[in-house]
Design a protein around this nucleic acid. Structure first.
Lengths: 292, 292
DNA sequence: ACAGATAGCTGACCCAGGTCAGCTATCGTG
DNA sequence: CACGATAGCTGACCTGGGTCAGCTATCTGT
């Protein structure tokens, strides 16, 4: 794979250049671990357990780091009023000062690297890195089966319906779709899949239900606008199809609105073929199936 | 700066995702330092001093790492036949095997990250990273004054002349340009500047000489094809101008061939204005000056 | 009210990574 | 041939990062 070689060469180069640089300068004022922790606490503060999760640190190790920052007068901890076991860490005035210093230094560091490029090329660099960032983030989206009544699932479906409402000439009325209908997506005969980003935000969803014993129906296929064009819909569809196969279906069907051109094109690319109307969905003008 | 924010956000994300990943997996078989060293020795082998320079390691530390790899039967060292003080490290058969394993693992690791993207998006990612790589590499090019008789300078000029030869309708005959003429570039009245990449390869050059006591002349402005379009010529020109100012000149002049459209455009952007012919260079059709 | 779970802390310990001074063998130069 | 410089090695030492077991205080569910 050429892509892999490119990524690896980038890694080696970039790690040595920028990564090490940042580490080195962060580590000169105080040990890296402490600096990172200081950064992570930030001006908003954070609960200890949150920090432990975000930095993936051992609880003992984190305790010690915190105590050192406390001794240096950069951080103060206070018990959580709602739960006496938990504690909350905030930056002191001096902590904020050091945070600012680190932040400023970090900016200068990057600026120094980028300065020779001039404004136009810097913008190009930023653009290339943003694209790479977005693509890697997209690649690390994972699909999980959740209960369709859960907040994440409900939010995803709501976003989907809101979008349909603006897209369809007649608008869209979800009716019971968020509540009564969702039992059809319960395993083992159905599934509601949410696509989660690295930071646990829903990037899309899709649902499967069993129409007849040998027929699965795909519904609620949706991808958040910021994650379109990275093949996520295809991944969700594939996931639902494999669940359909596991459920013993011999084919999946789906309906869609003529206004959803991209979706239709995607279904066709995925091997779906037009069939006759199989339901009385007032918003559907096209029906598809895929056999295996 | 928006660019800086983008780069920092990328750094944080990327370091946590790919960087840490690579480190972690490299470090599981054997300590990271050893793994890196193994990688760096490579199938071609390397001299100890080379390794020390490339990995920026303390000589004692490197010695110890090497000895551990030797004990594990992965590396063998042999004295340099030409210089009894120096030693050369090569991978043994088992060393090559482990190298291959690490290499393969590294590929799989990246492949796993990239796989969900599909081929087209992977290629896009690779493209974005290559562009970023190239831009950062361009930004870290440094300018150094060298003796024009040195190999690097000679090579850069030769490449320049070879290019002129293909570009000019009449071809180009350098005459004494590589030898007798270069004394004009000797400091303090002149300067020959070579642009070095991170890995000490010449990416371009430029020269300054003193025509009259108050007039500097810019010559031998050249940028290697792979480094064009990143503002390097502008940097070299600026550097030479500042040297000209320091030398007490009140203006710089230069000549160029009408075929070199990009160069002419660059000179104009940099503030150069057309003047009358000031020399009898048979290859020049345009003459410029810049005053300050 | 009590058992078990949870959050955070402490002590003990380990290892990789890194630095420094000093040693030996060899080389290049006058 | 003697001198200083250079390449590499060894010993001694330090620090940061990290793990593990066990402790205490608190919370939650029954």
């Amino acid at each position: 794979m050429d892509a892999i070689a490119a990524i690896r060469s980038f890694n080696r180069f970039y790690a040595g250049r920028i990564g090490a640089l940042e580490e080195h300068f962060l580590g000169q004022a105080r040990p890296l671990g402490e600096a990172r922790l200081l950064f992570e606490i930030g001006e908003a503060g954070a609960s200890i357990s949150e920090l432990r999760a975000r930095l993936a640190l051992d609880s003992g190790y984190l305790s010690r780091l915190l105590r050192r920052l406390e001794e240096d007068g950069l951080v103060a901890t206070e018990p959580d009023p709602n739960d006496g076991r938990r504690r909350f860490a905030v930056l002191t005035h001096r902590g904020v000062e050091e945070w600012d210093t680190l932040d400023r230094l970090s900016n200068h560091q990057i600026e120094a690297i980028v300065k020779p490029l001039g404004e136009r090329r810097s913008a190009e660099l930023a653009d290339a890195l943003s694209r790479a960032h977005h693509l890697v983030a997209a690649a690390s989206i994972t699909l999980e089966v959740v209960d369709a009544r859960e907040p994440d699932a409900q939010a995803a479906m709501s976003a989907y319906f809101a979008e349909l409402d603006t897209l369809f000439p007649t608008g869209f009325d979800p009716g019971d779709a968020l509540t009564a209908d969702v039992h059809a997506y319960d395993p083992p005969t159905g599934a509601f899949v949410v696509a989660y980003t690295n930071d646990r935000r829903a990037a899309g969803c899709g649902a499967l239900l069993t129409m007849e014993s040998s027929v699965g129906e795909i519904k609620r296929m949706w991808v958040a606008p910021e994650w379109r064009g990275v093949g996520l819909a295809g991944r969700i569809l594939e996931d639902l199809e494999s669940r359909s196969r596991s459920a013993g279906h011999s084919r999946t069907v789906l309906d869609t609105n003529a206004a959803l051109h991209d979706a239709i094109a995607m279904y066709e690319r995925a091997g779906y073929r037009p069939i006759e109307r199989y339901n009385d969905n007032p918003y559907a003008q096209r029906w598809f199936e895929k056999r295996w």
